[in-house]
Write a protein that binds this DNA or RNA. Structure first.
Lengths: 342, 342
DNA sequence: CTGAAAGCGCTAACAG
DNA sequence: CTGTTAGCGCTTTCAG
């Protein structure tokens, strides 16, 4: 039981009483309105500071029908890409004194849908999201859009939706990754990926297929390994089985956590990277450079993607940005390291 | 401009009109109150679904003076420990339909203080936090506690504060790490750490010192290297300089991002781990096992710490937990890998 | 320049 | 069982 409880809660009425003014004047003075005299403003500010006045966030939000709050909905948080993106988002909202509610779908469509339904409550002014990998039906998203809440998607976007989107050039990145492996001498390249609908997964797969096709290799799907989207040992088993069966000499892993699984699988089978199999992974992990061996990565501009997403969202919120929704494609970067050395 | 805007906003008044009932009845029916007839409840529920009614979060929070929202304040997000802890927190708040506001201090006392001041606005019912490394004055925290908002600290706690705290046994962990290195044959162990006040840093330092003292080694502070708490190349330089000057044969790194800096520093100086220098780091990075060489870690129970913190917070919020504030110490685990092999 | 009054949408006494 | 009423604390006309 703490002291100084509810009893001494100071609100505008308290200030008004203290200064013999009306709450209307207090309100205007605090918002630095033009039609309040400088002296009154001084007095109000002083009293507010002295009495430790803090405006009630919900009263203000209710009245203004806006909350200075946005939601961030992502599949996972223990993932370098997403946590770096959050940093980018935070870098633009913090200076504006906006607040961020964070929600994790754990890649579940049901959770995602219920989160979006809830957001129609006026809780947030806008939303930045990356869809769950098993989200196919997008009606929950459209319903929220219809309430007028702007949504900006990043990385995992829905193709059938009209909205602002920030993505990387996944097709090209996968194409580049595959080409990089081919140039390193690989003849039999596998794609280690996860199941799901987001376009980034299919784009990465298409890029991979195209690179093989352009080099006269017809894969017949044998080179595609589908893992679960959880960081579990199960994936190590799936990858090992594939390595044993198909004996690929090159692997492209499409999401961050598959790097560890792939390395462990190779290790358990005593396959040497890059001698027996070369590996490249889409990941933003900072430890890539000190892995055994250092891992060639497709590095996404996670921080800047988050930053851009937030900036576009604020453009919408402020009414500054009125053009049609756009898809912004930001370049990823292949960082070559020992895991793909010839 | 999306269709179906504000105009058709449906609130309790709409439902009341629709069904020829009062808003009081609607409110009670929706909350499944005992004194509403089953049939009325049915009608209300049906109408709510049909008209897509979503209760206004802020009106409700304002009226009830509680928001079903908590704040999470942490130094960084792109850090495995913190992101895993958030997962733990989320695992308990999501089923309770609570919301989480997330704030990053970037280890700045000023930002932290302004965040805590703001939370007196009634925006959240409770707070889970890990203090900034340069927070020394804790008056901003005490002030918030006085408003009656329960705060639970985890990992980076303040010693001079009365509050619920979830920590790991940092002293013992560091002692264990140092002992582990001594047993592996190290004679000259350095502690690579960051500057700051949180007790975990001093506990880790004390544990290190005690282990050396217990083994007849007097360090005279020469073995302590202080880095910046940013993930920058600067730290690689600082560590390299120390390695050159002091030639330690063992290193304990106290925070996650120093693992990468330490490995890079050794690499640049062509020092072999573990042959020339053995390394152990406090980190939760999942890639520890696939580093070159695999890294011996002090693994903190991050997920469970977050979970416990949230559970204790809910205990306070519900009034279920009324005993004096407690400090819960959870064990870390030394996971020995090749980086400390003899 | 300042104040009175209405109301954002919801909840909780209290009556009936 | 249902309705009336009075606010939660703030902002915003509109008068003066």
């Amino acid at each position: 039981m703490t002291a100084g409880n509810k009893s001494d809660k100071v609100n505008m009425k308290t200030l008004a009483r203290e200064l013999n003014l009306s709450t209307a004047t207090i309100s205007k003075a605090l918002r630095d309105s033009y039609d309040i005299s400088p002296e009154t403003k001084q007095r109000v500010m002083e009293a507010a500071r002295r009495l430790n006045y803090v405006p009630n966030a919900y009263a203000s939000s209710l009245r203004k029908q806006s909350s200075n709050t946005i939601a961030i909905i992502i599949p996972e948080i223990a993932d370098s890409f997403f946590s770096q993106a959050i940093n980018g988002i935070e870098s633009v909202i913090a200076p504006k004194k906006y607040h961020a509610l964070i929600y994790l779908t754990h890649d579940s469509y049901e959770r995602e849908a219920s989160m979006l339904d809830d957001l129609a409550s006026g809780r947030v002014d806008g939303l930045i999201m990356s869809v769950a990998s098993n989200t196919q039906d997008t009606s929950h998203i459209k319903t929220l859009q219809e309430t007028g809440i702007p949504i900006v998607f990043f990385d995992r976007v829905c193709e059938d939706l009209t909205a602002d989107k920030i993505v990387t050039d996944d097709f090209n990145s996968a194409y580049t990754a595959a080409t990089h492996l081919l140039q390193a001498g690989c003849k039999n390249i596998s794609l280690v990926t996860i199941s799901g609908y987001p376009s980034i997964l299919s784009a990465r797969e298409q890029g991979y297929r195209k690179a093989l096709a352009d080099n006269g290799i017809t894969s017949e799907d044998a080179g595609i390994v589908t893992c679960t989207n959880k960081y579990t040992n199960e994936n190590v088993g799936i990858i090992k089985e594939h390595l044993r069966a198909m004996k690929p000499d090159g692997i492209i892993a499409t999401v961050e956590h598959l790097a560890t699984s792939t390395y462990l699988a190779c290790d358990e089978l005593k396959l040497q990277i890059p001698h027996d199999v070369k590996v490249v992974c889409f990941t933003n992990q900072i430890t890539a450079a000190i892995l055994n061996p250092p891992l060639t990565t497709i590095l996404q501009p996670a921080y800047n993607m988050g930053k851009q997403a937030a900036e576009i969202l604020f453009g919408r919120l402020s009414g500054r940005l009125v053009e049609a929704e756009q898809e912004l494609v930001m370049p990823s970067q292949l960082v070559a390291r020992a895991s793909t050395a010839s």
